[in-house]
Each structure stands twice: as structure tokens, then as C-alpha cells.
Design a protein around this nucleic acid. Sequence first.
RNA 1: GCCCGCGUGGUGGAAUGGUAGACACAAGAGACUUAAAAUCUCUGGGCCGGAAGGCCGUGCCGGUUCGAGUCCGGCCGCGGGUACCA
Length: 853
Amino acid sequence: MTSMSRYSATEIEAKWQEAWDKAETFKAIRDASKPKYYVLEMFPYPSGKLHMGHVRNYTMGDVIARYKISTGHNVLHPMGFDAFGMPAENAAMAIGGHPKEWTYSNIDTMVEQMKPLGLSLDWSRMFATCDPEYYGQQQALFLDFLKEGLVYRKNAVVNWDPVDMTVLANEQVEGGRGWRSGALVERRELTQWFFKISDYSEELLDALDTLDNWPAKVRLMQENWIGKSRGLQFAFERTDGAEPISVYTTRPDTLMGASFVGISPDHPISKELEEGNPELAAFLAECRKGGTTEEAIETAPKLGYDTGITVKHPLNPDWELPVWIANFILMDYGTGAIFACPAHDQRDLDFCRKYDLPVIDTFFDLEEPKPVETEAFVPPKEQKVKWINHFAGLDEATGQDAIDATIDFAETAGWGEGVTKFRLRDWGLSRQRYWGCPIPVVHCDTCGVVPEKKENLPIELPDDVSFDKPGNPLDRHPTWRDCACPSCGAPAKRETDTMDTFVDSSWYFARFTAPRAETPTVAEDAEYWMNVDQYIGGIEHAILHLLYSRFFARAMHICSHLPESAKEPFDALFTQGMVTHAIYQTTGGNGRPVYHYPADVEDRDGKTVLKASGEEVQVIPSAKMSKSKNNVVDPVDIISAYGADTARWFVLSDSPPERDVEWTASGADAAFKHLNRVWNLCDKIGAMDPDANGQGDEDLLREMHKAIRDVTLGVESFGFNASIAKLYAFTNTLAKSKAGAAAQKQAIMTLAQLMSPMTPHLAEDIWAHQGGEGLVINAPWPVADEAMLVEAEVTMPIQINGKRRAEISVPKDMPKEEVEKLVLAHEAVTSRLEGAQPKKLIVVPGRIVNVVI
RNA sequence: GCCCGCGUGGUGGAAUGGUAGACACAAGAGACUUAAAAUCUCUGGGCCGGAAGGCCGUGCCGGUUCGAGUCCGGCCGCGGGUACCA
């Protein structure tokens, strides 16, 4: 074949990107005459390089954005950077330099890597959260929240490294030790700032029901995280007459199985007793070892200390229970004190066996009643059980009925009260770190904690800081802390804590609607563009980021920064799977693991080795691509070898978007071959005599309409891989078609339109080559003709006892009775029936027939 | 530990409770070519069989159903989150 031209991705991609730029195709301008559509992908952390996870995420968003443009929407599709955070400080410590330079240089690199992808982004709206213009507005929000009582201070525990004398993030604690010093980590209390998210527990929970276009699993995770429970709160009288101990329990029905009263090591009684008791002080110090994570606390070996205090059982004043301090009781939840029922709680049972405390059964299984030995009996709350001496007179009842009865009983008797509690805790936002948004308050000796004046915002981070010592450089900066008290004018000190980076990402979506405004948002812009119609991001953000953003939208509404309608800011959510890759690890001189990039590793003689040194590396199976593990693949290599359209086509094609995808090098090549095929097909059709007739025009057009239907359905339901499979099939059909020139031209132009969300550059080129009007991105999306989709004949498999044995072809709307007759006359059926009648005959019209014999 | 997912050929995966393996990758065979590349055509879950056909098969065990990859219960394995990684 003499080819007029060759597929050159580099050439056409640059050409069409320039055309879109020139036409300002993706610039979002408010236009009340068009329906708006806001599509947003979770913005990236500027780790340094773009990785395949980013490409996958942004390509998915781009498919949606371009499809919505083609269906007549006014699309907002912005991009920015979540730019504060620890890696910048770690880089400064490891290789020198400044977090700011490191971050902005990474942003430049990543933008350079993103642009060639041809994403339909409005780059004019870009910002980074470390821009003073952004974090200054965040400080203004903080001050508004403070005024509304949405922020407050209280004590909270942090990971403390006693050697480096610094606070550690959970990620910096490895096996209970500080990652740099190797010292055993302790828990220590600091005064911290908190957002009052717990005031919104009920609302955040109830509103989950309105999020119809969120994945059910995300709603369920948030529901469990908020953790609404109804239980009984009551107090145990102390035998020494001191202040009673208040407890909260979700299983008051098991009160007759109480073994001891347990209090948290952080409970006021623990602290009071610690004074002048070196033995207890040592015990509490032991309890405070280890990190603050829920996992560390839950999995730590159970430790207990008998305080010697005793309390009276509320139902029997002669029954005395000991009070123990137990390390698994959290001060943050309930009252920081519990009663233990070892027969029906595994943790309590383990504790009682260890410290030789009594185990008392309160109910048995209906089928096999037997006392608890080493395994606690914890049936579901809906299961009926047999009660032993229940004080409210229950015999056989479910746990839930018993709980309700017990609460009623206690309320009537007046010694307890039914209480609803939530697991959700207030959101601690203070971080003892430099590279974050400064908290805009001042500490004054006379006025106390004073909010900064709005006209002094932004409170900018100082540039002259060093990272040669552990700890927060703002603390040891010679002058930055010094300021005048905004209230009395006397010399005062700035707050040196900065904000959690989750604050930065909790409102960026609102800022995109007016990114250069001198207020956090602008009413008209927020009214027009909010909500985010489609939010796309990783499942790892299912709880924290999304819950914090939901809270922030409410708080911003209270302060008039968002309309009421934006209280739930994300109308639809899609959680994509992660891009995973094997991890390559060697051991460094200090015995710690060193991670290597896939590009630096190769297979030699059946071993995986470092390219440079030949040293063998350990291959750890697939895990989330992560900057800390270096198991990332550079998409730039793929783009420079094959072009952006190939990279885009490939990341969309193989895996369903919600599932994790393991990156392998093969496959990109195949995607490239296919795009070449489409290109050649376009060339061939373009060279046909326009008046040439052929055979099978209608067959081709029928297939085309089916492709329109299936590809559209795939795009609308995030089945991009299914859309692509259909596009492969339709391309194969077209390549083999002998139809006339007009039909083939119509088919290739429709193919270009259907491909344009995925491979926009190639689609534009085909469109132009076939004489399409304007840009394909602006051409209206094709609509399938229902009449062309109707099939005259259907193939129905015949099952005998559920196994497929034969099939028949029948007219689409043949009546059931006719089908039955045909089936019963079929040789495969008659030979098995041997004259007998079938027991049952099931005909699912247009689907399947099952004969039961 | 707790909460939430996922598990299908050599590989990625497809399948409103209705023909398991669409579409692709890798592989094998063939065509074209002096040859190679490129391109095109064909084959392909396992076992038995020349074929027709049969048996088995969606992590494991059990259940519901005319019919289960799909729904239910119990396991096993892997992944995500676990409030200071983002």
C-alpha cells in the first residue's frame, strides 16, 4: 500500500495542543446559558515526578471532561498542587536545600510532564497550596471558624522521640522506634488546635444517605468511622466515698458479668494516683511507650495495674469490683472508663485470664449452652440468646432487646441514662513543623491566645530557616516569632505550629471556582460552579480527606463562603484503583532498607539486580506506588517513545478503573500498534473513490450504532475498559468491511468521535483528514439510532438441568409457547427425555431455556 | 486488633442471577518477503477422544435457586484505611 503519510504522534500531538490553546477550548468562563459541569481529580502532591497513577487518574477525568464538552456542557476542569507536607522537609534534611525551592521545582517538572498528555485543563486556574495567596485565604478561613466557635484548643497526645526531642508523624515511627534516632517512642501531651467536627457527627452521618452517586463502600466506611452508638452511662460508687467513676458501655445488658472497672492510663484518677507512687509511675510510663496509632494501641500486649480502689456494683451494693488501669482503654472515647465483661468481650477475657480476674457468663447460646473458657461468646446483636438471672427479667431475647431493656430499667430506677455517642473525634490540626500553613494566632502574656488581624494576612513563612537540627525551625528562628499583640500591642509571640495538610486539601475544590480572589471564595462563582459534579481519586482517601472536606464545606457555609447547596461538595465520587508495582529493596549500611526505582533495576541470569552495580535486589510483591518506596514508573518514557495518546489509551484499556492495576512494561507497544492501525485505516478510507459502492453498508452502520451505544454507556458508567474493548471490535469490523466509501467515511468519523475522549489528538487528526467541520472536541457527541439496534433473530441456549446442551435461533419476539414447542422437539431434548415429560420448563424470553428432567 | 474491599486461562481482564473466558497481551502455526521488520490470516481453560461428544473448571467449604463468577454463611490469601504519609 502506498501510504500518503505516517502516524507521527509527536507531530500531531503538538499540533492539536496548539490548536486547543489558540481556541482557548478549555478555558472555563461562567455562562448561564449552558449547563455547567465541574470535573475534578484529586490534586497531586508534588513528589517530583509524575507517575502512572497520576496519568491514570487524570486521563479518567479527562475522558469525562471531554465527553461532557461534546454533550454541550460548560466544563470546569482545573489542576493544582497539594504542596505542603513532610517530604519537602525530609528532602531538605537529606540533601540540603529549601522545602520551598524543592517544592516549586517539583511543580515545574510535573507541569512540564503533564502538559504533553493533552489534558483538557484550564491551566489559568492553577495554584499550589503553598502559595501565600492560597494559604493566606486559608488563614482567613481559620479566623472565621475561630469566631464561629468551630476551632478550639485542648491537650492531645503525640508521638515523642526522647532522643531527637521532637514530635514524630505516625509514618516516622517504625516498630515503636523513631525512624532517625531509633529511640523508643513515647506518647506525650501537647496543647493543640482542634476543629469541632464532632459537633457535626450526626449530620455527617445522616447526609451520607443523600450521596447516591458515591460508592456504597465509601459511605459504609464513613458510617463506621463516625461510629454512632447508643449505650448506657452510669457511675460506680467508690467504697472510699471519693468521686464516683463514670463509665459508658454499649453492652449494659452484660452488667451482671462485670469483672472489674477499667480506667485509661490517661484518666484523671490514674494521674492523681501517680503522684508519690513510683511503681504506678513506672507502669504508666510503660503504658505510654509506643506510637499513638489505633493499631499500635489495639495490638499492644495487654497491661494492667490494680489501683486498690474498689467500687460497688450498681445492682448489688454488697458486690465490690476492683478498679484496674488498663492500657487498651482510650481516654478519647466515652468517659475513659469501662466495666469489663470478659465472658462476652475477647479483649476483656484476655485481660482477665492474664490477671486472674473472674469470668461470669451472662447468657448462653440457645443450641449449645456452655461456659466461656478461652474464647469469648460474642454473638451478633440480632441473635437470640438464653439469659442467666437477668435483672430486667429477660429469658430468651436478642442482645439488642436486652440492651434496650437494660437502658429502660436503669433510667426508671434512676441510676443510669441512655446516651448516644460517636466514635468520631475532633480533628487535631496543629503540626509542629515548618512546611505548612502558619496558624494565625499570637500568644500574649496579658491577653492570652489572640487571633491575628485579617489585614495582617497572609502570615508568611520565613525563608531563612535551616533543617540541620530536628524539630520545628520556626521555634528556633531568631525573629519570626516576635510580633505585637493584635489586642493590646505589647510584644508577643506568634504560634509556631502549622496546619495539618488535610486542611489545605479540604477546600481547594471551592477555591478553584475563583482562584485569584482576595477572599476565600466569590459568591457568584461558587454559586455557578459548585458542586463538583464528578470527583475522582484514590480509595485511600475514602475516609479522612472526604470527611474533612464535607465538614469544611459546612463550616464554610456557616461563614458565608459557600452556598447552602454546597454543604455536600461532591455530587458524584469515583474511587479509582491504585497503580501498583513490585518494590525493589536492598539493605543500606545502617541496616535500614534502601528502595530502588524500577528503571534502575534489570533482570540478569534470572536474578534481579541493580543496573549500576550488579548488586542483587530483593523483589517485594506488588504494592501501592509510593514515593517513599520508589516503586514508580516514569510515564515520560512512555510518552516520548509512543506519544500521549498511546499512554492514555493504554492506562484506560486493560483494567477496570476501580481496580488496582499492576504496571508492566508490555502492552504499551500493543496500544501503539492499534492506534497505527486506526491511522492507516483513516488513510485508506480517505483514498477511496468517494462514489465507490460496496456491500454491507447497512451491516457496517448497524455495528456503528451499536458501538455508539456501548462506548457511550461505558464512558458514562466509568467502564472505560469496556468502551475500549468495543472500540477494538468496531475497528476490526470496519477494517474488514467491504462497504461503500460513504458508509466507511461515516464509520471512521464516528470512530474518531468515539475515540476522542481517550485519544484526543489522533481523533482531531482523523476528523480533519476526513474533512470534518471545526474541531472534533466541539462536534456534538453521536447518538445511537434505536431503529438500527434492533436484532431480528436471537440465539437461545438450551439448558438441560442447568447445563448447556444445545442452542436454537428464533425470531426476537416469538411467543413463549412457540419456543417451548421448538425446544421440546429438539433432538438434544428428546434424546434425553426418552418420551417422558419434563418436570419443569423455564423460558426466559430472548435469553435462555432450561429443561428440568 | 478493628473497619472496607478484592480473588476468573500463561497474563490484563469480560459477563442486568441466564451460553464463563468478550476485548487485548504473550505464545504457536501460516501468508507476504531473498531475509528480517512491519502487516495480514488462523489456533488456543484443563483432561479424555481421530471426530462427534463427554467430564472437570471463576481461592476453599457449605447453602439458596430451574439456573450461582454473581446472592447468603463460614474459612484462607492479598490489598486499602486505622485520625501526624498524602
